[in-house]
Design a protein around this nucleic acid. Structure first.
Length: 764
DNA sequence: GAAGCACTACTTTTT
DNA sequence: GTAGTGCTTC
């Protein structure tokens, strides 16, 4: 029974068997972190701990899904399903459904996703007559979000001199006010955003001792994955829940902390021992994943960071292949080179597609890779990006579901009240919003009473509103009676959504219709899921609101494996965390892209980018390929790029002779019809298309650098721009071809101009 | 109020 | 390049 523990090395085994008391595992990349976590849970289970008493928190749905599967493999299906395992957000959303009434939330509260939050914030900025150029929704949202992650409420925010002063200095003094309006609106809609799930859980545990006591007793054993990525709110929840039993095990790697941008606090792991004097710490430094070459490169990168717990990853694996470095002239060519390299390696080593992954910094980079793989007939799959549940048509239909479940859901209502068009337009909606604000009611309550109010609506509009309200109410009435699929299908057709997409015979329309069908299929599967015997919330059928509970927190569609299971994986580095692939391509290693241009201001941001690079490198088992392009399309323009500074941190001795391989490879495979035909077409196609633009840009910029004024520009000078007119230089930054000036133009405002493109004339 | 067209901001990363 | 917004016309 205990023999599976023999799979573990000494440190891993110690970490697994030390079941009681506080434990921290510092687990280097590829050192068997997930294995320790899963074995630990399995070991607890086998030692007789009641699965209901185990709480395992992960960071992503994917991680929790995988962990669940692995545990079930170890201990068998059955009782182990009762372990509380999931993401922070999903676990605490679940607790809030049970306990939220204490904070004034019904159990059917809605979870707003990032898009809903942003829309609401935008709407509020507009309603407050603030300039949306000054109060950019993204900025406001991130201020509010980081406040919430640090458990600063709207009133705390407004009472905090330092915070308010920062906003004042940034010329955005109203953010505190926007925060409190935003919270009020969420509350009125019976909605929580992602941050509220953690914030409100903290309030619950802080203000209701019986709740705290209940969950402290329930969760006798707590495990936290990726602890380095927890923010303050998450840290405190874990600390409180563990306070009684102190059977807490956190696993993490400070070198892989890549979420500081959204509030993750690396100090949580660095200071963990301060909270638990009895802490037992285990370091896992042996890597089982990668070749010596890859490990050496990774160590050579991370050593450049100042902030870290010292550890050096080592491996018993072979030396392995050298690192391949690809230099492309454009992003299109980069894609082609990657595709070719995938093909060659596949042929030479007789590999399947799923041995390969292409990792990039931003989602936008996937397109050129995708194009090249498609031309080369290599199956691929993109992870992340626009996920299934974020597509417009899906969110439209989900909007109906949401409104059915929670009539007060403001964002859902605004989304669908006139979709498909039913004659309830902007003006009417504005009147409703104003009335709702005045009476401090939800939009729904105003609509319900649209007849007897002083809304000033004409009879036609009133009847349209009441038809709409009656329809939604009829859906709501069927919530408990029909199963999720029956009701879902009924809503899809009687709302007119299905017809809307069915009538659209464009390719997009057809694909939308198919997506709707796919959603309904998923609901069908859910509805027909075997009932576990015990009744969920007293219901004997699987209802729509049950289905919807998890949907807001799903990012990847958990899409059922389609026909194709053997594909090359394309994803951002963030999404690749925790995964491993035999052959890894890291593309777009260029300054301002990776490291991201927004990270260049501070050392901490740059170090986070470096950790990101470290994470990317350590995904590779057998062979690593790095690539960059000299020119890249960014927001529609061809931009000149410099190789990333991170490339300099890779010791040359680990790098294969660049270019050589490519030329050889091309010769070797030039007689292969499958590949060479489309690919050469692809290359020449791209070349021809881009050459003109490249040459025109280089020649014009060359000309500029010799003849024009851009070298002599200085802060304070008055200049003239062909389009914006006369302006004054506020700031100059960057150098070489990336030299950038901030120029103030009268009546236009500040503009950031790349000097190699902007034709600035000095006029005084 | 709706549909069609032009304009602009956007791209960091995710629950 | 695209989604979202805003303007114009019916």
């Amino acid at each position: 029974m205990n023999n599976f523990l023999n799979d573990l090395n000494k440190e891993q085994r110690q970490a697994v068997e030390q079941t009681d008391g506080p434990v921290m595992v510092i687990a280097g990349a590829g050192s068997g972190k997930t294995r320790v976590l899963t074995y630990r849970v399995a070991h607890l289970y086998n030692s007789g701990v009641d699965p209901f008493n185990i709480l395992a928190l992960t960071f992503t749905n994917k991680a929790s899904r995988e962990m669940k599967e692995r545990i079930i493999k170890l201990v068998g299906d059955g009782d182990a399903r009762n372990i509380w395992m999931g993401t922070f957000h999903s676990i605490f959303a679940r607790i809030l459904r049970i306990e939220g009434h204490r904070l004034g939330y019904p159990s059917n509260y809605t979870i707003y996703d990032a898009e809903d939050s942003k829309r609401l914030i935008k709407a509020i900025i507009k309603e407050q007559n603030l300039d949306d150029k000054v109060y950019q929704a993204n900025y406001v949202m991130s201020r509010i979000s980081s406040a919430k992650s640090n458990l600063i409420s709207a009133s705390d925010y407004k009472n905090n001199f330092e915070i308010m002063n920062t906003d004042k200095m940034a010329n955005k003094p109203k953010i505190g006010e926007l925060y409190s309006i935003y919270q009020k609106r969420l509350k009125k809609a019976d909605a929580m955003d992602f941050d509220d799930l953690l914030f409100n859980t903290n309030v619950l545990l802080r203000d209701f001792p019986d709740v705290l006591y209940k969950y402290q007793n329930k969760f006798k054993y707590i495990l936290v994955d990726e602890y380095q990525d927890t923010n303050h709110a998450q840290y405190l929840i874990v600390k409180k829940l563990a306070a009684n039993n102190e059977n807490i095990c956190v696993v993490g790697d400070d070198a892989q902390s890549i979420y500081a941008f959204r509030g993750a606090n690396i100090q949580n792991i660095l200071n963990f021992k301060n909270d638990y004097p009895d802490l037992k710490t285990y370091k896992l430094e042996q890597n089982y994943r990668s070749t010596k070459t890859i490990i050496n490169v990774a160590n050579g990168i991370i050593v450049n960071n100042k902030d870290q717990i010292f550890k050096e990853i080592w491996t018993d694996n072979d030396e392995g292949n050298k690192i391949q470095l690809l230099k492309a002239s454009t992003d299109g060519e980069e894609g082609t080179m990657v595709a070719r390299s995938v093909f060659e390696n596949k042929m030479n080593e007789q590999l399947k597609n799923d041995a390969f992954a292409v990792l990039y910094r931003t989602n936008a980079q996937s397109r050129s890779i995708e194009e090249a793989l498609r031309k080369a007939n290599i199956p691929y799959r993109i992870f992340g990006g626009l996920s299934f549940y974020k597509r417009k048509e899906i969110k439209d239909l989900l909007g109906y579901f949401r409104l059915t479940i929670n009539n007060k859901d403001e964002e859902a209502l605004k989304r669908i009240i006139n979709y498909p068009a039913r004659g309830i337009g902007k003006t009417t909606l504005e009147k409703i919003i104003i009335a709702a604000d005045k009476k401090n009611k939800s939009l729904w309550e105003i609509i319900e009473k649209s007849n007897d109010s002083e809304l000033n609506l004409n009879a036609g509009t009133r009847s349209k509103l009441s038809t709409f309200a009656i329809m939604i109410k009829s859906f709501t009435a069927q919530l408990e009676k029909k199963n999720a699929y029956e009701l879902g299908k009924h809503i899809a057709s009687s709302s007119g959504i299905l017809k809307e997409f069915y009538d659209d015979k464009t390719p997009e329309g057809i694909s939308r219709y198919e997506n709707i069908e796919e959603l309904l299929n998923a609901i069908k599967e859910f509805s027909e899921k075997e009932n576990t015997g015990e009744e969920v919330d007293g219901k004997s059928i699987h209802t729509l609101d049950e289905f919807m509970q998890d949907v807001a927190l799903l990012t990847d569609a958990d899409e059922k494996d389609k026909e194709e299971t053997d594909y090359v994986s394309l994803m951002t580095i963030h999404a690749a965390k925790g995964l491993e692939f035999s052959y890894v391509f890291i593309v777009g290693l260029e300054e301002n892209l990776f490291p991201s241009i927004q990270s260049l201001n501070s050392r901490t941001d740059l170090e986070e980018e470096r950790r990101l690079f470290y994470v990317a490198v350590t995904r590779a088992e057998t062979k690593l390929t790095l690539s960059y392009a000299e020119n890249r399309y960014k927001w529609g323009n061809l931009t000149i790029c410099e190789p990333s500074r991170f490339l300099e941190e890779v010791n040359e001795k680990y790098i294969e002779q660049p270019q050589r391989t490519i030329v050889k490879g091309r010769d070797k495979f030039s007689d292969n019809k499958l590949f060479s035909k489309p690919s050469t077409q692809g290359i020449s196609g791209f070349r021809n298309k881009n050459l003109k633009k490249i040459s025109s840009i280089t020649s014009s910029s060359d000309g500029q650098f010799e003849s024009d004024d851009s070298q002599d520009l200085q802060t304070g000078m008055a200049v003239e721009h062909s389009r914006f007119g006369k302006g004054k230089i506020i700031n100059i930054e960057g150098n070489g071809s990336n030299k950038k000036a901030t120029v103030f133009f009268k009546g236009i405002g500040n503009k950031q101009l790349l000097l190699k493109f902007a034709k600035l004339k000095i006029i005084g």
